[in-house]
């Protein structure tokens, strides 16, 4: 995330907050795709918004920044949710069970490794480029390319029967 902050865009505070607000639906979907329940995704996003109020709007991609901050918040609280809300995952499953296509996609995403999921979500849900994903996740662009290629192949095979 440090690399992203080195690309100032000269956003005013109001523009920055507006951009964060606009990224809300996209980042929410990204968190759901990562495996968060709707409640956890909303909570993690709220954490990210609180952090956004203290930022100065010098990141290249507000949605990327929001995604990283919110996903970190979600991961931090995951262990606590497992203890205090052990049935949350079941409720989450019941919530999405009515939408076949969506659940198929989320189930297949859940089978990927965490790194693969992060890369795929950054690329296909947030719409970031390979370079932006690499900056955001602080990994080499080559690693992003290889991970995305491998994960996309697996998803294609499982969701579309291997067609491209």
């Amino acid at each position: 995330m440090a690399l992203v902050r080195e690309v100032p865009q000269g956003l005013t505070r109001a523009e920055w907050l507006l951009a964060c607000e606009a990224s809300y639906p996209k980042v929410y979907r990204a968190l759901i795709a990562l495996g968060a329940s709707p409640e956890d995704a909303a909570d993690a996003l709220q954490d990210a918004f609180e952090d956004a109020l203290g930022e100065h709007g010098v990141v290249a991609k507000p949605e990327g920044w929001m995604f990283v901050v919110a996903s970190r918040a979600w991961k931090r609280h995951r262990w606590r949710n497992r203890i205090f809300r052990p049935l949350a995952a079941l409720r989450h499953a019941a919530h999405i069970a009515s939408r076949d296509g969506e659940i198929d996609l989320l189930v297949e995403l859940a089978k990927l490794t965490e790194r693969q999921r992060e890369v795929i979500v950054s690329r296909y849900v947030l719409g970031l480029s390979q370079a932006e994903t690499a900056e955001l996740l602080q990994i080499a662009p080559g690693t992003v390319a290889a991970t995305a290629h491998q994960a996309a192949g697996l998803l294609r095979e499982r969701l579309l029967g291997g067609t491209k």
Partner: peptide, 9 residues
């Protein structure tokens, strides 16, 4: 580096 992006996916 080619920015590979699967349109179908």
């Amino acid at each position: 580096m080619i920015d590979e992006h699967d349109a179908t996916l």
